[in-house]
Structure formats: structure tokens, C-alpha cells
Write a protein that binds this DNA or RNA. Sequence first.
RNA 1: GGCCCGUUCGUCUAGGGGUUAGGACGCAGGAUUUUCAUUCCUGUAACACGGGUUCGAUUCCCGUACGGGCUACCA
Length: 506
Amino acid sequence: MENIRVRFAPSPTGALHIGGIRTALYNYLLAKKIGGTFILRIEDTDQTRYVPGAEAYIIESLRWAGIVPMEGPGFGGAYGPYRQSDRKEIYLEYAQQLVDSGHGYYAFDTPEELDAVRKADENFKYDSKTRLKLKNSLTLSAEEVKRRLNAEEPYVIRLKVPEDQSILIQDLVRDEVSFQSNELDDKVMLKGDGMPTYHLANVIDDRLMKITHVIRGEEWLPSTAHHVLLYRAFGWETDMPRFAHLPLILKPDGKGKLSKRDGFRLGIPVFPISWNGETPEDSFIGFREFGFDPRAMVNFMAFMGWNPGTEQEIFSMDELAEAFTVEKIGKSGARFDFDKAKWFNQQYIMATPDADLAKTVRPIIEAHGHQPAEDFLRSFVGMMKERVILFPDFWTNGAYFFEDFTVFDEATIRKKWKAEGSRAIFAPLVEQLEALSDYTATSVQGCVEAFTANAGLKFGDVLPILRVGLTGTMKGPAVFDMMALLGKAESRRRLERAFDLFDKVS
RNA sequence: GGCCCGUUCGUCUAGGGGUUAGGACGCAGGAUUUUCAUUCCUGUAACACGGGUUCGAUUCCCGUACGGGCUACCA
């Protein structure tokens, strides 16, 4: 089999949303599946939209997700440089080649002039029908062109789209997609500042970096026609890369594609990691900061537009790579479903060993001023992991393991505790527990059972008192397990404190 | 407007000329559980519409509708 080389080519214009991560993921999976190479290429040809820090953000996001480039800026590789701004001369050379071979031409129309034309005719296109009426090397005399070039007048190089050609794209996702060249405009290849446009840079780099598969978002499907024309102009059409255009990710509600603002509007993350822009409006919380396991995010994203065709849903990155095929990618847009994302996270948390979970949870607990012993923390996460969805829930739902509750379930206490008699009933239980020589879940349970029977009570009269007394809430792990973890002294302290509190409400 | 792409339960999707149209999330109910959660069971709910082709179409073809993308010296 041929040596697969794929690339993820983001533009460093800000935070990279989840759709970009999915594109990177699919590229990565295809490469990983068959020992190919996954390349990161930074497409920073638009100087005006460049955002410092965006490249670092992209790389950190990919690393967090486990989608690590094998070639790219900072990752080595024999086909660099991998930042397009460092490849300016290369594009210049090929742009010139386009002009020399008659597939391109100089155009001297200023942006202002073109704006004016567009204003006069909303449907204006710079194409085979209009180019002869504009200011370019096809209409100006050779001397005039030379004069302008020598005078360093600003110009662009445009692709001279040939007439009456049909362009048939064999898309791996969509099968055949066809275009007519007469519908296509003469796109700018080299801009006035000497930088290439996406179209030129993309084709040249994919060629030079020996890219075999172009997997990108559906928004690129229309311009693929131009890219094919470029391959054709350079004589590379017979071995151009294979294309696969991915369906878009849609808003969770309403219509349209997912946008940055949706995350803010709905209070959900649409970015892998947080981005701190210059303004609050340009700052976003990521899946990481929301409390997601990156494996869950990856698993979730993999299923937005792809499906293995089996009933298995939980996939490690390795399993994903093994099962992944471009043919299984869907054609229609996928709506972002945050409930499903949370479900994946819950599945991953439950399946994570306690020691690993403790590592992730420790900083969350420490942020609230507690330094639990490692054994204690591991037992804690073990008891709580079936009761949380996101990492911060360990604290939100389990803070009582580390500090006294301040509010408690008064409704339950009103039902189960009587100021006039309950204390006298339960005081002996505290003493019987105190007398236990080994304080384990089993021994505590035995003690409580004996007490309950002797007092002529039911479990339902005793357990709620212990549970709320210990934790303040009716929700949580098994009471006896918690008592064993808390220990004899702490459990007693809590119960006695709670009984005082209970007397005041009942 | 023009060009291009798409359309199976609310959502993610499997499937495919003859099926009780399958799974997952969500939601509802039940079992287990001292609680909550987990787990298990049950239920809920879909082939956009109209024409063809065919013995038969949700599946193939053509339209329509709807949705989306592109239409920059942005990617």
C-alpha cells in the first residue's frame, strides 16, 4: 500500500473550535490506521488575521486530545518549513510559473476598483467573460505590463480559468462531484503583499509535502474545482491527492453551523481548551476546563459524522484508528449534542482506575484548600465515580468528605428526628460504635444492624439519620463505606455535631 | 441570485428493492439499591413531499420543498 500522508492545516486566527479538532482527528486516524504520517501545517498567509498565540493554542489542543503531529512546526519532518509564511519564495516561484505557462496573469485592478465594479453589478465575477475588460496582462500591452512591474506597481497573479472544461472530483465521501469551468472565477493566486492565497499555497504544499489524502471540511468543496484546475495547470492532475470532504457540525439548537458564540450562548464548551482572547467576547471555556476527559471528547467527536457500523460506542484512540475508514464517514451535517458528550465523559470516568482518577481530581480538591492523603483520595474517587459526570462534580457532589456541611436536608430530618426523643434513642448507637475495636464497613454495619434490632427500629429509621448526619445530604455512597473511610473519631464528631443541629430543626 | 452538497426516531446514527426499519443519547415507567448514582428490563419515537422505474421502493431515477456551504487580494 502507498505511504499515506495526511495533513491538518489550520489558520492561526484564534481559537480552534471542535470542528477543527474533528478534522484533525479523522486525518490522524487515517494515518495511524496504516502507519502513515500525520502532518501539521500552519496556514498563516493572511497577515491581517494572524493572532499571536493561536499556533501555540492549536498545538496544545492537539496534544491534550492525543492527536500529536508526526511532522510540523516543532515536530521535525523532511518537508518543512511547515509554516506557510516561511515558504513565501516557493509560492512566488510557482505563481511565476503559472504566468509563464499562460495559466495565470498579472492583474493590476485595485481593491477599490473591484469594489466599485461589484457595487455596480452584484453578480460580478472576475472570469473569462469579464477579464478582457479589466486591467491585466491580457488586456495591457507587453510594454505597459513591463513598465508597471518595473515601477513596482501593486499587482496580483490570477488563475486564468480555461473555458468549457468540466471538472470531475472523485470525493471519498460524496462520490462524484462535478463543476463546469465556465462557472468559475479567476481566483487570486498571489496577493498584492506577495503572499499566496489559500488556494495556491494549499496545492503547492500538498504537492511538495507529498500529501496523499486531503480530508477537510465541506466548506472547501466548491473551491476544490479551482484546486483541480491548478493541479491540471501544473501537470500534476494524474497524481493529485484524494479528496474527502467532511460534513459540518451544526448548532445544538436552531439552524446553521456551530459557531463560537453558541458555546457562550448555551453555556457549553465548543472549544477543546480555554481561549483567553483580548476581550470577554473573544474568550471561551474549553472541554478541558469544563471537566472533560480528553478521551471522552475524542470519542464523542469521532462519532459526529462517522460510525463504525457496529454497536460499539466506547472506543480508545487505538480502537478508533483500527475501525476508522473514510467510507464510513457520513454525508449530512451533525448537530452538536452536549448530552451525548456528557454521557461519554461519565462512561470514561467510571472506567478509569481510582489511582488515575485521584491524579486528576487532586488539584480540584486542593483548589478548595484541602490536602487529602493519597489513600483517602483514592477511596473517595472510587466511591464517587459512579455519581459524577464531569470532574468538578467530585467536589460539587462530594465536598462533605473534606469539610463540614453547612446546609443539610432538613426535610428528611423533620420526618426522621424528634427533638424530644431521638437523641436518647441514638446516643447509645454512638457509644456502641465507639466501642468497636476494628472500624470497618462490615463491623460498622454489624453494629448498626444490632442496634436497630434491639431498639425495635427499622433500617429506614436509622440510615437516613446517619447519612444526613455524616454528609448533610441523602445522596451519596454507601453509609458504612463512608464511615469506614472517615474513621471512628471523625464519624463520631460529625454525628454529635449533627445531632445538635437536628434538635434545632425538628 | 448563481454554483455545489445534503435530507432515517427530538438528537447521533445502522440499514438497504420484499425487515416487526436496529442501536445509542434524551425522556417516561419498572427491578435492584438504606439514599443518590450505577446496572438491568420495558416503553416512547423516524425513512421530507410528489412523480416515475419495478410484481414490489424508505432504499434506484427525476423533480419539489427544506437545510447547509461557497460565491474576497479570508482561510
